[in-house]
Write a protein that binds this DNA or RNA. Structure first.
Lengths: 188, 188
DNA sequence: AGGGCCATGTAATAGGTTACATGATTGC
DNA sequence: GCAATCATGTAACCTATTACATGGCCCT
């Protein structure tokens, strides 16, 4: 399981509340790990009672108070232990691939609309990632005067490049899928 | 949920027992959907009692008897309904991406071995897919004399091409990750 | 007055993983 | 004799999803 670890990494990058984490999991971290607020609150509660994270009540004006979580020594140790453990490449779940193979027993042409919709969504994701890259990773490499190279920034960037490569690959494949479906619909 | 549907597609491609399905989910279908035998037996039982699939006891010699499942009319209808429903692109879970961002708070150099191990696994997967492509999708397009173009074959092939594209993209990205980690380890 | 954002949660259900359990046959 | 393959399952547990629930502030 890595939701624990994803949350720890996010809190190390910047402490925050359950709500803020949920928002980050809709963007940024969400590019490579998804979680809903219900999951996040549950895990935060468990990690707090295990002493992995600390809480601080932050009163706010014009907004409900929030609980700001930050990583404690035990949490850092747990993350470090996990980082040193080998993990297996994650198992894949591609609904669309199931649908494509299933289309052989239904109407392949009917899938064209669905694949076009997918293509649209991935086009938007790619644009979103590219905008993020332009915003966060262009210009001076080290914004801190004469500071050391920022490892965190470099590592976040390489992960984002992975997301960009994934979307580009997916778009090319979806074009291949569309061409195949159209060929079949035209009776070869 | 799509395990039901993945099983229906697999049974339409070829009827079989729970055990055989479990084996297919280690290869072929397993490229884009994973399931263990426990899950499969549970779902088969449910689908059978819902009348989606039919069973036939097949006595065997030198082996335990098996139950061969095939898709019933209700199952076909359920699959067809699902095929016509829009689905959202699946949520992503990349342990390695979490590790990479987490490495900023630990030792980035320690991740190099892990990433190299990943690279190895993906190299093997790519080789496996390419061998499968060579075996199943090369040579005469229509092995049945003067038959119509086989839609199932074409669709299986385009899904496999997706797997190949995914592995190639992943390998290129892992090289990028390794270069980044080595640069950081060398103190930029 | 209504919708959206901030903020936190509970409850029920569905889905997935791990461990345990059995038993025959084939090959080393 | 031991391990692997074929074949089917149960039980316990953990994780994830969906729906429900509350309540104040801000903006239109």
């Amino acid at each position: 399981m890595a939701l624990d670890h994803a949350i720890l990494v996010s809190l190390l990058e910047k402490p925050g509340s359950g709500y803020e984490l949920a928002r980050r999991f809709e963007r940024s971290i969400g590019y490579f790990w998804t979680a809903t607020h219900q999951q996040i609150y549950r895990v935060l509660k468990r990690m707090e009672s295990d002493g992995w994270i600390d809480v601080r009540e932050v009163p706010q004006q014009g907004r409900p108070d929030k609980k700001e979580y930050s990583v404690a020594a035990l949490g850092r140790a747990a993350l470090s232990a996990w980082l040193h453990e080998p993990i297996e490449p994650e198992s894949v779940r591609h609904d669309l691939a199931v649908k494509i193979r299933g289309a052989a027993f239904d109407d392949p042409a009917a899938l064209i609309r669905e694949v076009e919709r997918y293509r649209q969504i991935h086009t938007e994701r790619l644009a979103h990632y590219l905008a993020g890259e332009l915003r966060d990773f262009t210009g001076p490499e080290a914004p801190h005067a004469a500071g050391p190279p920022d490892a965190g920034r470099e590592l976040q960037h390489v992960v984002l490049r992975g997301g960009i490569a994934y979307e580009r690959m997916t778009l090319a494949w979806l074009d291949d899928v569309l061409a195949t479906l159209r060929r079949l619909a035209a009776g070869r």
